[in-house]
Design a binder for these strands. Structure first.
Length: 434
DNA sequence: TCTGGGGTCCTAGGACCC
DNA sequence: TCTGGGGTCCTAGGACCC
């Protein structure tokens, strides 16, 4: 096995490039099944925050025709009819299970890129080509055995093709859950079987345009276009996508950079009208956002606050506003941020609308050790120490052990989570009993 | 009655610099 | 090989992803 440094791997072509995309099958539903074996062959659906939409479905639920993202209240009957287990989302569990899957996958290549909570790219360039499929099957099998989570793998020379291979693998339930696109006799036939909207990077708008303007209906149709011309008509993103479909790598592993924008927002469990209630929610979101900010060693130059009513209520006009506060010196201090957020809220709050959601966004993010200081401001070394203690205590004793008074203690608008499973792997009190 | 949350990248266009 | 306004910074908005 020979392996090139990830930054240079796209320049050196000693070996044909081989990228594997590993994707957990029905991830959230699968996590729930790990600790409830009785649910193994039952339909399982997982809901978004506030028990709003369907965000994960077991195969049985998919087979019943219940679409991804559908509002729960609209498909409750169908779910009941098939005897589905319907659960509130349990992010502590999913986050921990994800870490286990990633730890396992990392054993099989020196170059892995975590792409989302349930997906990772494994660079297998330079591995022995004639045994790659077997190697993939081993990875899939081991991951299932070590974590309880079933996964699928697509292998190809580019990311777009690997993604496509993974999709075909799941759809056709390929043996061993590995589909190596470089091993098929008729690649074009495979591409012709994939609808244009199922190509990674082609969303709702683009697929509609491609279908209507260019009669492009499948991945094959798109592959057969002129990439340069399509760049002129669309964008460089489209050009790259086409080149990747043609087998020319354009997308490479990216280093994990600190976030440039941090968002914390939630819909309310029930509508909110008063400024006090809004401010409590915004204080909570601000505290959470600042925690994330500090955890990546950053400071932010501005905070933006947003409030809105429900966009789905036909009876009442949609109301949505946002405002931001700039800081002379970028900061990660929760109390300064809450103060800034409070000022912003005062500007935009209007009495009357029934608010459905509030949130904050931190912008102009920089590394804390690189900031331009304010010449006239008093330095406040106490802030860093205080935030350090705050984070350390909450880390050790659990979320919100220490919190700001403005966050309040009783939240009638708390999000709905009517059917959540225990935090089997992250809380001593929830540990499974045998 | 009930519709998630958190991100990224790209483009266009304006203001401004030399 | 041909030729030549070039360039930065900022914001808003659109599109995509999971």
């Amino acid at each position: 096995m020979s392996y090139e440094n990830s930054k240079e791997s796209h320049i050196i072509y000693d070996h044909p490039r081989r990228i594997a995309l590993v994707d957990c099958n029905n991830f959230y539903a699968s996590c729930e099944r790990v600790f409830k074996p009785a649910w193994q062959h039952k339909p399982v659906a997982v809901l978004s925050n506030n028990d709003g939409c369907i965000i994960a479905r077991s195969n049985e639920v998919k087979a019943a025709g219940i679409p991804m993202g559908a509002p729960y209240f609209k498909c409750k009957k169908e779910l009941d009819a098939i005897g589905a287990i319907v659960l509130s989302s349990n992010y502590s569990l999913y986050g921990d299970m994800s870490a286990r899957v990633m730890d396992t996958l990392a054993q099989y290549t020196p170059d892995m890129e975590i792409y989302s909570i349930d997906e990772a790219w494994l660079d297998l360039t330079g591995f022995k080509l004639d045994t790659l499929t077997d190697y993939g099957r081993q990875i899939v099998k081991d991951t299932h055995r070590f974590t309880g989570i079933p996964v699928s793998m697509g292998i190809a020379p580019t990311k777009v093709l690997a993604k496509l291979a993974n999709r075909v693998c799941k759809k056709q339930n390929i043996k061993g859950q590995v589909f190596d696109l470089t091993q098929v006799d008729d690649l074009d036939a495979v591409l012709a079987s994939v609808d244009i909207e199922d190509v990674w990077g082609i969303g709702r708008k683009l697929s509609q345009k491609l279908r209507e303007k260019h009669q492009i209906k499948t991945a094959l149709d798109l592959k057969n276009t002129d990439a340069n011309q399509m760049r002129r008509l669309y964008s460089v993103v489209m050009q790259r996508l086409i080149l990747e479909l043609q087998g020319h790598p354009c997308l490479f592993a990216e280093d994990v950079e600190p976030k440039k924008q941090i968002i914390a927002s939630r819909s309310f469990g029930e509508r909110v009208t008063s400024q006090d209630d809004l401010m409590q929610a915004i204080s909570m979101h601000t505290a959470r956002a600042c925690e994330k900010l500090r955890s990546q060693g950053s400071v932010a130059g501005s905070i933006s606050v947003s409030i809105r009513t429900s966009p789905f209520q036909a009876r009442e006009p949609f109301f949505s506003r946002h405002a931001s506060t700039q800081f002379v010196t970028p900061t990660a201090d929760t109390s300064l941020m809450i103060k800034g957020a409070s000022e912003a809220l005062k500007h935009i709050y209007k009495k009357g609308p029934k608010y459905a959601k509030a949130g904050v966004m931190l912008n102009d993010i920089q590394q804390a050790n690189e900031i331009q200081q304010d010449f006239f401001a008093e330095p406040s070394p106490k802030s860093d120490a205080l935030m350090g203690v705050l984070d350390a205590v909450n880390q050790r004793y659990g979320k919100n052990t220490l919190f700001y008074g403005s966050q309040g203690v009783q939240h009638k608008w708390q999000m709905k989570r009517n059917n959540m499973t225990p935090r089997f792997t992250t809380s001593w009190s929830d540990i499974p009993k045998v």
